[in-house]
Design a protein around this nucleic acid. Sequence first.
DNA 1: ATATTTTTTTAGACTAATCTAAACTTTTAT
DNA 2: ATAAAAGTTTAGATTAGTCTAAAAAAATAT
Lengths: 218, 218
Amino acid sequence: MLSYTEENYLKAIYHLSDSGSKAVSTSEIAETMNTKAASVTDMIKKLSNKNLIAYEKYYGVKITKQGRQEALMVVRKHRLWETFLVQKLQFSWDEVHDVAEQLEHIQSTLLIEKLDEFLEFPTVDPHGHPIPDKSGKITEVRQVPLSDCSGKKKIIVRSVKHGSPSFLQYLSKIGVYIGANVSILDKVEFDGSLEIMIDSKKKVFISREAAQNLLVTE
Amino acid sequence: MLSYTEENYLKAIYHLSDSGSKAVSTSEIAETMNTKAASVTDMIKKLSNKNLIAYEKYYGVKITKQGRQEALMVVRKHRLWETFLVQKLQFSWDEVHDVAEQLEHIQSTLLIEKLDEFLEFPTVDPHGHPIPDKSGKITEVRQVPLSDCSGKKKIIVRSVKHGSPSFLQYLSKIGVYIGANVSILDKVEFDGSLEIMIDSKKKVFISREAAQNLLVTE
DNA sequence: ATATTTTTTTAGACTAATCTAAACTTTTAT
DNA sequence: ATAAAAGTTTAGATTAGTCTAAAAAAATAT
């Protein structure tokens, strides 16, 4: 069984590697985990000995099939808990991250299956991120940054790329939410900002940076 | 802020001291926590330095007002989570303890207040134990062991004294639950066992030991 | 191509929580 | 009242996770 800390490292490696596809460097891990490279090297050796990652000295790590599976279960728990907090306890989507970071480490298969059932088997969390099923399978929906869209097509907001609390609060304030309908009214050449219409009733300008962080389907 | 381990020691001391009223010995703590006396001595010093317990060498510890308050918050969380597991996730009352032991350490005041509200401010957990309110206040209901009762009075089962999974499973099997109406039909002189009627429809014999572990109001 | 910079690893130390074994108190039993 | 037993504390070691500082390897820049 993995420790709290091992689970956190594995999850970070999973995310940094784009769901396990590419190698991750020691310093990248240290940065996202707010630790020092030396600590990362130590933990990397531990995870490598458990066959959760493949480690080549000085060349970073790649997650193994087994490691990916473990990471997916942590991600699953995190996202189910976030969904619970928002849908059942009326948390707002910018308040759930830190609590879910703790809840994701509770060890009980029964608990997580019952929670999944209680929530009626959700497929995405409050930020639009997919929830792996009990076998670890993810149903990905092809999404593009809103900043890459153009024309008058009907666009639906599917997820946020990086959901910092302040970005999420800003989105709520301007009326953007997961599932919202938007259309692009104008693109400002100068700074890449967009004028968009939300739910056919509200016009707002959003920065290029914000548009890059909103993932949509056309 | 208290560590996971400090919270567990404090909770154990709270329970062993009858909610803080009497002193507790090192070996008692070691026994219930499945550790060695030497480890307990170390932790006792830590908690004492934080003014959560009063420690006199060789004479055990007494919980302080501050320590009692901290312990009550852990107990509150534990019992709210147990209630959640049973009422919302359909756990049975013999399955909840170990998971609640983990959940009780999640740090978030907001979470626990929202959970309390979601559960509609329950006053007792699935085993009939009182749930401290957010200020730590407990509404105790005077209860006596069923083994101390006699006569044909209407008796209501209020709580289990020690709720081991096997005892709880046994109770479910014979139809005893928190809130059940029972009446005493006969007391066997030989071994102290009782013949009782549950909900005016089911007659069973229960051992003296079982009757001592069922707390009721007459 | 070699020197400089950056990144990574190693070595050694620290903290929290645990343990065993030995020393020390207190309790109990004669 | 004192010896034996029981309980408690201290001393010293261990493990997981962390750190700093130094050494080593890789990347980069002239």
